[in-house]
Nucleic acid binder design. Structure first.
Lengths: 338, 338
DNA sequence: CTGAAAGCGCTTACAG
DNA sequence: CTGAAAGCGCTTACAG
């Protein structure tokens, strides 16, 4: 009987559920985990007892005993970009529908913070890993590889086939923007970048390459490592108008920069797209409302989250990975600004 | 020796650290937790051994043994509102600096989802709870009360003294907006609401009360339970211009609605503030950049997160709560739109 | 100031 | 299909 008391928190234990159902704790455990070998009648009885007592399994005990949790480590560069929130919400939805949960961490686009996070979260013995891109430090990369956990990289596409990825080609997206602006008759290009993460640089590379291939000189680059923001976009655009008034097309690495520039253009009376064309990136909420409505590249972040989570679950459940690389593409949404 | 092998994950265990330092596991445990009674030399040795092995405590084992984790349950209505992200990031910062971590959950402003979340997270045996506001279901409220964990409510101020809260008076904020618009000579008021959560209704109540007290009829209410968004603000404003062109001042429950209305006003050529004044809420990024620059109520969400986390840690560490109610106020930022 | 014993609430083999 | 035994990696009393 001593083993029958509730746990410290007052929550009921598996032993109590088992006693109420008249079975052994192991059978109760199996019944609740839907292990197939259990008599359906017993399963029913155990489930009823669990519900009656309001039983919730103790994840600490479960993790300790099995050396594996039902948590998936999800690493995201920042919470301040709605992009990643949309991806994460989808991940959560897929995971929770299958009885898993997300152990989410963000690292302000900082490799050292990411490394610390990985080390900490590994101690929670997650059953799988979802990471953003391939910009990890060497130490992080080693930690991820050595733990041997199923893992999928999101947003970027892997260059080699030995690692699974779900995303789209950032370079191709950059190139598509260049081609669009060229088709629209633009001749003097600028690229606005902030944060300067890996994927942004890939977009820039694609943009520049396509320009050069079409016979244009490379675009003027206005870059800063500080985080992207509306105010920054306004400031960058204002500066550009002073120094390079001849620019007639700008590709912004993120919509918020484009929003800021749009406001500044309105204030200064610079006509968009007549004088200068704007193309943003991500198609964030508001791109379709701002003046002028913003041309932008719609990125499939929710779908990336969904597919990555689904594929990870398949790996966790021992399935063979079919394709290791899933390209979900992107879509150029042409509106009034270009 | 059998007890000395690494754990399933390959991570080193406390026993290994203890062996390397030449002490018992209990002493190693105490040394790493900075229990004061341990010989400084031993602490040093244990720390060195831990660092050498790259030891990270197993949280599952720790939680199971102590019936208490170092996790704080943090409940947030939604991740899609930057407001809560800013509050949460501050909470995280305070917690992690003191060796705690956030177990964050969000519930799409849905009471049932919040209840499920509470039930699940309680199983993780958190050491404290940070919740947003007081709009929980009865069941949720009981779960929170019965677990007996230290708890602080954020954003809203409690009505009774038996529960701790850190926030500001939503009603007072609404009233301040009303008084400002009246001072500016406005006469025909509307209130735009979405989501219709508790705090929004409090702001509305404060707004309406102040209008009535000043001798005006109550404001026209344009309300919808759907989530707040830029597109919604544009649509609501467009509709209002059809039905009630005489309105000369709008208080928006959130800046994104105001942003959408600002775009629509530009499109329709409705002059702000000449024809109609706009006041937003929260002073989100972009409010100072949009055309016209938006008057808004700046809410101290980061400071709320910081103070709430700090006070919770004090409670966790057994301190007596000084004030149970901390009013951090708000600030009306008057810009060009009113 | 340090340690041996017991136990947290589960699950993993191993029997039957 | 079901169960008794052992153990996951820590910490909590309890001794000394």
């Amino acid at each position: 009987m001593a083993k029958m008391r509730s746990r410290g928190t007052g929550l009921p234990t598996l032993a109590e559920v088992a006693a109420k159902a008249g079975v052994s704790p192991i059978t109760a455990s199996r019944a609740l985990r839907a292990v197939p070998s259990v008599d359906p009648d017993l399963v029913e009885r155990v489930r009823k007892a669990a519900k009656l007592l309001g039983y919730v399994p103790n994840p600490a005990a479960r993790t300790l005993a099995s050396a594996r949790s039902r948590s998936v480590m999800v690493l995201i560069p920042a919470l301040t970009n709605q992009l990643f929130i949309e991806m994460f919400e989808m991940i959560e939805q897929v995971l929770s529908a299958r009885g898993f949960e997300a152990l989410m961490g963000h690292y302000h686009y900082d490799q050292a913070e990411e490394e610390r996070l990985i080390r900490n979260y590994l101690a929670y013995q997650p059953c799988g890993i979802l990471v953003t891109g391939f910009g990890q430090s060497e130490v992080s990369a080693r930690l991820l590889a050595d733990c041997g956990l199923p893992r999928i990289h999101m947003m970027e596409l892997a260059e080699t086939a030995d690692v699974a990825s779900v995303g789209f080609s950032q370079e191709a997206a950059g190139a598509a923007v260049a081609r669009h602006l060229i088709e629209r008759g633009r001749r003097h290009f600028a690229f606005f970048g902030a944060q300067l993460d890996r994927r942004l640089l890939q977009r820039r590379d694609g943009f520049q390459r396509a320009l050069v291939e079409a016979g244009f000189p490379p675009a003027l680059e206005i870059m800063t490592p500080e985080p992207s923001s509306i105010a920054l976009g306004a400031a960058q655009f204002s500066a550009l108008r002073q120094t390079d008034p001849g620019i007639d097309a700008i590709f912004f690495c993120n919509d918020d920069l484009a929003f800021g520039a749009s406001f500044e253009a309105l204030r200064q009376g610079v006509r968009v797209p007549e004088t200068i064309a704007f193309v943003g990136f991500n198609d964030l909420p508001g791109a379709d409302q701002i003046l002028p409505r913003l041309t932008s590249v719609r990125t499939p972040r929710a779908e990336i989250g969904r597919c990555a989570a689904l594929r990870l679950l398949a790996l966790i459940e021992g399935e063979k990975p079919a394709d290791t690389r899933l390209d979900l593409g992107f879509e150029l949404i042409v509106r009034d600004s270009s």
